[in-house]
Design a protein around this nucleic acid. Structure first.
Lengths: 209, 209
DNA sequence: GCAAATTAATGATTTATTCAAG
DNA sequence: CTTGAATAAATCATTAATTTGC
């Protein structure tokens, strides 16, 4: 209970660094001193005594804690980053499902259109779909399909198995709506009838050489 | 079908920029030229002719396309960022549920312990839980509860309503396991009985002043 | 504004791990 | 393989900072 020998009234139970001491310690840490040796601790202590009461163990503990908490902060940051990556993977997976679903709808839409166009002819819509001749009939839709297919193929190829061998008109075993709820981002696939995409010759007047 | 006037055999149907041309074009684009004027196009074209066959319309189209695709990339990046934010919110929400669940288990565990300790006394476990006197009986658990409570409070306060007024022993309406699956981060709550916390004097030999 | 209560920060301690020497 | 020093990690405990209710 009684304070030590000749020390003045200092009932504080633990060291509380003065701002100057703290500043100097942090500067030293930044300067590269992470685990000071005994003699370093001794020197630092005697130097910091100029700014207030301090013991060697305080310096020792300070560097110990500071280093540990530095690492801790770093680790936490890393973990958060990993979380983000993990979530990003999930995002990609769901977007994949979502895109596939969009593509399915588009193909379905295309198919019904072709059926209407082709009624009476020998070649039916499915054949047209397979051999690609439908593009001539509905070029603007063709563009969108190609576009979607490309985007679909571009994504990272994990979870590939989830996408193959699926009926074009069936939803992805019910996961579609969950996806839409979770990620309400709309991949704008314009289906409006802007049939003016004929391959015209470009004619900006300034191109004449 | 036939090639133009005096041009040598060049059956290629479309312009294919040489690496040098591409580099120069990109440099110009980065330099600020997004939609070059007619004269600019003319100059660029004549300059790039040094590196390979090129026409004014190629330059024009290149800038047109590059600008558009730049915008597209930007838009995609923004969307992705929004996705990440959204997912991060979800993470926080689920972690919140997860933590609360942990806390519930801990409280339940604490409660049963106190019931055992208190059998025969007037003050029952629930009362002890409420007024805080249980900390004297089980200090090491108390610390963990406080710790968990702190972490629990730390999170962002969206979805706060989901957490309040919940029975300490009931799971969070079944969402708990989903959370655990999605985010397998373990909040290590050590419940071991280390009651040997006598305050020993630290003794690294180098600390003697 | 202030005082009590709560929360965050961090000093101090203990425990676990690593690694070199024998 | 064991030992022991060094130190990293985990934990405990106190103080600074803040929130909260009046």
């Amino acid at each position: 209970m009684s304070p030590a020998v000749a020390s003045a009234a200092l009932p504080t139970s633990r060291w509380c660094p003065t701002p100057e001491q703290l500043m100097i310690l942090e500067e030293m840490y930044r300067g590269g001193i992470k685990t000071p040796t005994a003699s370093q601790i001794h020197h630092i202590t005697s130097y910091l005594s100029l700014y207030g009461r301090i013991e060697g163990k305080n310096v020792f503990y300070w560097f110990q804690n500071h280093k540990a908490r530095d690492r801790q902060r770093l680790r936490r940051k890393l973990l958060l980053h990993q979380h983000t990556l993990h979530l990003h993977k999930q995002l990609m997976y769901h977007q994949r499902l979502y895109d596939h679903n969009q593509q399915s709808h588009l193909l379905h839409y295309l198919d019904s259109h072709l059926r209407q166009l082709n009624q009476g002819r020998v070649e039916d819509a499915s054949t047209q779909l397979l051999n690609g001749t439908w593009k001539a009939d509905l070029p603007e839709i063709g563009y969108n399909v190609v576009n979607l297919t490309n985007r679909f193929r571009d994504r990272d190829s994990t979870m590939k198995m989830a996408m193959v061998n699926r009926d074009a008109t069936s939803p992805c075993r019910g996961e579609t709506f969950k996806t839409l709820e979770l990620f309400p981002i709309i991949t704008t696939v314009s289906l409006k009838d802007q049939c003016t995409t004929s391959t015209q010759v470009p004619n900006p007047s300034l191109l004449l050489e």
